[in-house]
Design a protein around this nucleic acid. Sequence first.
DNA 1: CAGCTATTCGTTTTT
DNA 2: CGAATAGCTG
Length: 687
Amino acid sequence: MSASESIAQGMNPAQREAVLYLDGPCLVLAGAGSGKTRVITQKIAYLLRECGYMGRNVVALTFTNKAAREMDERVKTLVDRKLSKGLIISTFHSLGVKMLREEARNAGLKPTFSILDADDAMSIIQELLATTDKGRLRHVQGIISLWKNALMEPDDAAREAITPGDVEAANIYRSYAATLAAYQAVDFDDLIRIPALLLSSNEEVRTRWQNRVRYLLVDEYQDTNVCQYRLVQLLTGSRAMFTAVGDDDQAIYAWRGATIENLAKLTTDYPSIKLIKLEQNYRSVQRILAAANQVIEKNPKLFEKKLWSDLGVGEPILVSAMDGEEQEAESIAMKVSASRFERQAQWKDFAILYRSNHQSRILEQALRNLKIPYTISGGQSFFDKAEVRDVLAYLRLLANDDDDPAFIRAATTPKRGIGQTTLQALGQYAASREISLLAAVAETGLESQLAPRQLDPLRTFAEFIRRMQWRAGRGAASGKDAAPAEPAGVILDDLVEAIQYERHLFELFEERPAQTRWQNVLELTGWLKRKAEEDNMTLFDLVQHVALVTMLERGEEDEPDAVKMSTLHASKGLEYPHVYLAGVEEGLLPHLGKDDEDGDPARAAENLATRIQEERRLMYVGITRAQRSLNLSWCKRRRRAREDLVREPSRFIEEMGLGDVRVQEDEATAAMNPKERMAMLKALLKK
DNA sequence: CAGCTATTCGTTTTT
DNA sequence: CGAATAGCTG
């Protein structure tokens, strides 16, 4: 057996071809469950083990940290440590940070630039827009993000803006960009945009990176936006040594700028590209796959492909019409419980999927009532929690004086006598002198602007920050005489202690919530300390690293035996033996927001069609998560805000073509009162 | 300035 | 129904 054969053993011909093809660019159209991760990991192994590629010359990009980590782990089992040294498997955003950190000077940033999260960005836009209209704010933030992802500068945006609203948004975009520059900060979109711009404008940088990235692999290619496509192009250059893996039927991120056209564009930009289709599904039973295929058939297709499976027919797919959302939740919880018992399965074999986050609350409650262990993925990230952001604000400020949003957050939490009016005066002064808030505090000119009782807390705060910066070795970083940098862990502990954050939490919240919040803080500092030691990172390295990491990346904690709850978006790439899809209703699963404001009916109709197609793909993703059994449910009535709404089953249920079993009234459970239900469940569990 | 109460308000999906 | 915000009092 030759070496290359040994790498690709146990793979089907298409998979093997995808792994071994190295004559040029390669596009792998990988249907759901067709083993695309396997192809990518095997290909990395092949490159490193058989083709003499050095670890540092291979880059694999994903969209989520979780996917990156998973891939990394799988590669580690295939390839010797020595060979994979320097190998980059990361998200687009992490690669962007890495590039930005190494090329900060070329990008006009200081090495300790800050990364703003969506909330910080939103407050900046709010200031610039001078409005409290939430809808308007979201719209403007969204459109700026889309512009950035389409590689449009403020000038381009202004030129293309038609409505007065868009013209205003373009102006905000301009000042927003200026504000970020003043803060020495970048937002999430910039993490990819700026490296792409840098590569295209600076030949020296471009050559350096092209020499470094000898082979590039991109996962979930259908979710790339214009900016990411550009980055891929610039990194691979004319050599074009890359493999893109994607599935147009699973494109569910158009709303954040992803364009499926990128898949088609690949075949026109690289006419010689090798097209390989992965059509055998190794995940789902035939009935499930058939339903998925029937649904997605209603969408216009970019590439013809037919998924098939030889895993047997499987059980019927069940659809339940429920009266209301609490019945639905209860019914799902009971079915999961009963099914686990009947099948002698584990909790972690079950997943409950839903369209939007707020559905999770009631489901959670139902699971708790039946003492069913669960974990939620998607939803609020660990790093979005207020207490975590509070502590991180201090770290950001330590690293970057110019990070005004961090200054404001740190200076006001915990409360230390610095309030709105003080900050406003300080802000005005800083703006007139064109310096950061932190720098402004030290100026003597400020004394005429503020009363001592306002000034004192500011000075105390700034001194505290300066002292911490010094201890963290800031002097050395900025080239001044060296301060002995203390370990990041020690500084971190001292800082949290010094601001009396624990006391702050217990004053602000009840005993129990305060405790969980404090636990979160301890978890954060613990994680940071570990990271600092393991990877020998300074406090400043940590701050930038942390900005991108989601809770899914922390710790190697092995998965507990628990039911998974997840949004459909967050479920992509995962698989479960038994899947429950909740809220499969018109208005929820095809979630169709309000109609477009601008009055062109033709465009509005087209828009609607596009949106339904994306919702359909979402449904497709949901169905194809299931390996063996699939349960759908919808509510005839759903309470929203004040009113009760009558709901219709989702059109996608019809489209699945389930025939007679299509709608099963769930009389058995719906007719019972809660007491009876509990009794029935207990009897079931006793058996 | 900070903490409390009254009122408004709203609802997709996330790196 | 529940959470974020505005407005008032100590």
